[in-house]
Write a protein that binds this DNA or RNA. Structure first.
Lengths: 138, 138
DNA sequence: TCTTGAAGCTCTAGTGACTAGAGCAATTAC
DNA sequence: GTAATTGCTCTAGTCACTAGAGCTTCAAGA
């Protein structure tokens, strides 16, 4: 049996976060010691590692809930799991595209400032006047 | 003079968000009509457009506060403004790098599933077993 | 002038995914 | 036995909004 601290060290999930996941129903409430401390089995360790891994990949808690539900039914078709992963991939790609637009604009703004004072600072001027932007962002 | 709705239409900032910015002290409390409704001047319109633009570029509200303070002192050196923009650029680049790692991993996971059921679904297996990952992420 | 409907007002609470802190109790190592 | 560490519950804070209730004001047409 593992204490909550053991679980935290083995999965990389912080102790308060584990308790938060329990509150949210992502992990089941575990057994308790005589002194009311949480005691986890290996199965619960694995589930938490699964959650950690999915969070690292950017899945929302609700998606993780679905994936956990699915993994409890290994005989069902996996179209739903594939769909969740694919949508996550699409969402990550959209975020990358948006951030790249920002990067381009910021790069232009941050490197074009040859001014000495705020009065002729390109950063401030560019923010004040959208017309100075190279293209649409946001 | 503009109503809060005029301001919203002209800047693209939603009405509740304008009120929220006022509460946060990002925009000053404007004059009021006899019936207690907000009435904005052109100057306030421009400030809100500045804020909108900076938010679109991903600046945090605290950074925007600094940039606004700076823009009120055009005679001061603009090193601080440049620094804020540069740090924002660095932070955007870090986010892009992290998301690209996720993209690679998700692509591998989402496209490798040739299974029919959850039991042999690569998405579920990859999440359960970090050892299946191509490299470190998260 | 009256009426109607849109727009405005304040206030509270909710979002997501945690994080921080207070004030205790239990466990573990020496 | 004792001291340090770890654990417990509970509340509140983070960020940047967003939603909703219940009310008032405004602008345009009849």
């Amino acid at each position: 049996m593992f204490s909550i601290g053991d679980l935290s060290r083995r999965t990389g999930v912080k102790v308060p976060t584990i308790r938060y996941y329990e509150q949210m129903g992502l992990v089941a409430a575990p057994e308790r010691s005589e002194g009311n401390q949480r005691r986890y089995s290996r199965q619960e360790l694995e589930r938490l590692a699964f959650i950690r891994h999915a969070r690292d990949l950017g899945f929302a808690v609700e998606d993780i809930r679905s994936l956990i539900d699915l993994s409890g039914h290994p005989e069902q078709p996996c179209g739903h799991a594939d769909k969740i992963a694919e949508e996550q991939l699409i969402s990550v790609r959209e975020k990358i595209a948006q951030l790249k637009r920002l990067e381009a604009e910021l790069e232009r703004i941050a490197t074009c400032c040859n001014g000495q004072t705020v009065g002729d600072c390109y950063v401030i001027r560019a923010l004040s006047d959208h017309a100075l932007c190279a293209d649409e962002h946001g």
